[in-house]
Design a protein around this nucleic acid. Structure first.
Length: 398
DNA sequence: AACCTGGGCAACCGCCGTCGA
DNA sequence: CTCGACGGCGGTTGCCCAGGT
């Protein structure tokens, strides 16, 4: 704070880069590596600030960047990871190694966000907007929301742990590469240094973990009873850390859980409501064609990503270490990635789409489709967990 | 042909976390 | 422990261009 902007210096150029500038930057980095970004412009003969050079390099000039249209799988990955991680573009970018966080962010803001909105899905919460209109009794609502929160955070914990592990691995491998490559740039290396944010980058934070712990610590002091958490706080910001009300501990079914421990969340579904959005958009050929080609009765495809209607069973205390170990044991097959994802996101969820008359079905009482819905939900989120637990390099989609 | 408008994207801005002196 | 330098991140801006009027 109070620090002067890096480009305050008079004479430094701003705005679009010229081919000559690109060439200078490229040539310098290829020869010397970027080293200190602040010192680079002078050495490379550029009238730019170091930050501008870094951005130009990471977002445009880097040789391992894949440009052009996002394919369907990339879109799905972005959507699902966004559901987990929120606007943490760099984290999302780690699963799309050839895409920059900036590119993903732009694509989200200009395409995917609008698409989800048109489908009736809140792009922030990834919930159907119809949810807000459904009225259910207070307790079940609280329970559902608590479950929502718990599952959400569980998935995010997994993702966070995954990032920790990946960054460690990357740091390790990069140390190896450093011995044989120019600093800061590894031309021709088989495995790219990753996206913008993956270059030996430590995870940004484990704020979720911390919050969870904090919340749980608080809860241990509380009555451990009701479902009184502040729903809005939890639900409205997938990117935020958790907020627990003073007297409203998250409810864990299990008995005592030690301080600083986290209870394992298990996806145990119940019947419940259906929240859907319907894709009926002209011109969304990829999505639409998929729906047509599969076993769908019509063009209606619902994209259900809710976390409702799950109950959680807190079975055993766990901690970040156990979580990490748990992640290590997860192996995701190619089929899961290729079929499960597409299927779950586009086809599977379509089976619970709304009817064309737009009338939402009433599932509050747990209709006969509830168990299927539960299965779908479980599979959906398991697939996301699989995604975040799979190494990008292992993923067949890359 | 000229003008308007909206979409897409590169780049900038400001804040934050980390690290070393 | 403090402070400054630095890099990274997410939000936002503004330019460019294509399509419409």
């Amino acid at each position: 704070m109070g620090r002067s902007p890096c480009c305050d210096k008079v004479g430094l150029k701003k705005g679009p880069w010229t081919p000559e500038e690109d060439q200078k930057l490229l040539a310098y980095i290829e020869e010397h590596g970027h080293g200190s970004w602040r010192a680079l412009p002078a050495k490379a003969g550029l009238q730019r600030c170091g930050k501008s050079c870094r951005l130009r390099w990471t977002n445009y000039l880097r040789p391992d960047i894949k440009r052009g249209k996002f394919n369907l799988q990339e879109e799905q990955t972005i959507i699902q990871l966004h559901a987990l991680l929120g606007n943490r573009w760099s984290a999302i970018a780690t699963h799309l190694p050839k895409r920059t966080d900036n590119e993903i962010k732009n694509y989200w803001n200009t395409h995917l966000k609008k698409r989800l909105a048109k489908m009736g899905i809140d792009p922030v919460t990834h919930k159907s907007k119809n949810d807000a209109l459904l009225s259910i009794d207070g307790q079940s609502k609280n329970a559902a929301n608590l479950s929502h929160m718990a599952q959400w955070e569980s998935a995010r914990l997994e993702a966070e742990a995954r990032l920790v592990r990946e960054s460690k691995l990357r740091s390790h491998s990069i140390q190896h590469q450093l011995s044989s490559a120019t600093p800061g740039y590894f031309p021709g290396s088989g495995s790219s240094p990753g996206s913008t944010s993956t270059l030996a980058q430590p995870p940004r934070s484990l704020d979720v973990l911390k919050s969870w712990n904090d919340g749980w610590s608080k809860s241990s002091e509380g009555n451990g009873g009701g479902l009184n958490m502040r729903i809005g706080d939890v639900l409205e910001s997938p990117t935020s850390t958790l907020t627990f009300s003073e007297n409203a501990p998250p409810v864990m079914n299990s008995g005592a859980v030690g301080e600083n421990s986290i209870s394992m969340i298990e996806f145990v579904g119940t019947s419940g409501s259906t929240e859907t959005g319907i894709i009926k958009e002209e011109g969304e050929h990829d999505w639409k064609s998929l729906s047509n080609s599969s076993h769908l009765p019509d063009n209606s495809v619902s994209l259900t990503s809710t976390l409702h209607d799950m109950t959680i069973s807190m079975e055993a205390p766990w901690n970040p270490d156990s979580l990490r170990a748990n992640c290590d044991n997860v192996h995701v097959g190619k089929n899961v990635m290729e079929e499960g994802f597409t299927h779950l996101l586009l086809s599977d969820s379509a089976e619970r789409s709304l009817s064309d008359d737009g009338k939402d079905s009433d599932h509050s009482g747990g209709s006969g489709s509830g168990s299927n819905y539960y299965e779908d939900n479980k599979n959906y989120w398991n697939s996301i967990l699989n995604l975040v637990n799979s190494s990008p390099s292992n993923s067949p989609m890359f």
